[in-house]
Design a protein around this nucleic acid. Structure first.
Length: 279
DNA sequence: CCGGACGCCTGTCGGC
DNA sequence: TGCCGACAGGCGTCCG
């Protein structure tokens, strides 16, 4: 479900509640996610303070004094922070976990709860610097950071023969660009998603890098995209769905030229584009 | 080394 | 109303 803007929205929602506060207990109800939740995690994290909540691509990094919790939301994961309230005046009880609430981080001030019906998400633990973890080590640059630009994309494109859409969705090239935002960025840059990546001029990659940046930044401003069930850590939907130009718009008129938007499959993912505007 | 297909899971939606 | 297949915001792994 979540791409970079949804993960960043989640990070911003949970960080103020976690930072500087102590973890009382880790509760694992369903350890079988994408990978098993490490059995040593509860003992390692209990009693520790959260230093910071960072993000790398679509991974959330909850940095403790003695290691880092690595969280990934997969396709259907979401995090909520359920504040305890102010006892004794407002001893609001934490709601009982529901069917797909697999993991709780019980804090002094509330509970961080992971819900993930499809269980493609992950909760991992490392005592090494997180950037050295095998899942993070080989990731590409942050799309909103200084290392991501047209020349970077162009350079990556020369080594490969794949549709440009697959290029920008590859986390080893640039992180955080999932199916929705890949479609939107290619539309804004007027590039056909199926065009072979090595047959696109450098100047067009400047436009694509710029479009990717802009779309992601605007989506973060809007709190992400809610298609069916995305909610922020406070339970609010994101409002970028109303700004989508092509994603999910099969047969609807292109907002620029009126041609019907087409849907075709690239790399087993639905791909939406305007056959006239995008070349 | 690369690209493409697969599999992991559950929920939902459209068509019959 | 019910059933059944297709599909869903991700991504590591395997195979050719």
């Amino acid at each position: 479900m979540p791409e970079l803007p949804e993960v960043e929205t989640t990070r911003r929602g949970i960080a103020p509640w976690l930072q500087g506060n102590r973890i009382l207990e880790v509760r694992i109800r369903q350890p079988r996610l994408r990978w098993p939740i490490p059995p040593e995690l509860p003992a390692a994290a209990a009693g520790r303070r959260v230093r910071d909540v960072a993000r790398r691509g679509k991974y959330l990094l909850v940095q403790l004094e003695n290691g880092t919790l690595i969280l990934h939301l997969g396709m259907s994961g979401s995090l909520r922070f359920l504040p305890t309230g102010n006892p004794p005046e407002d001893p609001a009880p934490i709601p009982a976990p529901e069917k797909h609430d697999h993991f709780d981080l019980v804090m002094e001030n509330g509970t961080l709860r992971l819900r993930d019906p499809r269980r493609f998400g992950a909760v991992l633990w490392t005592e090494q610097p997180p950037e050295t973890h095998p899942l993070l080590r080989d990731l590409g640059p942050e799309p909103l950071g200084p290392a991501f630009d047209g020349p970077h994309l162009w350079q990556a494109a020369q080594k490969r023969r794949c549709p440009v859409k697959s290029l920008i969705m590859d986390g080893h090239v640039v992180v955080g660009v999932g199916n929705i935002y890949a479609n939107e960025a290619l539309f804004q840059a007027r590039i056909h998603p199926h065009r072979p990546s090595h047959r696109i001029a450098a100047a067009r990659y400047d436009a694509l890098a710029r479009a990717t940046r802009e779309i992601l930044a605007r989506a973060i401003d809007q709190g992400g995209t809610t298609l069916r069930d995305f909610q922020s850590a406070e339970g609010r939907p994101g409002y970028f769905a109303q700004a989508l130009q092509v994603y999910g718009k099969t047969d609807q008129p292109c907002p620029a030229c009126g041609q019907p938007i087409r849907c075709q499959t690239i790399g087993q993912r639905s791909t939406f584009y305007c056959p006239r505007c995008q070349r």
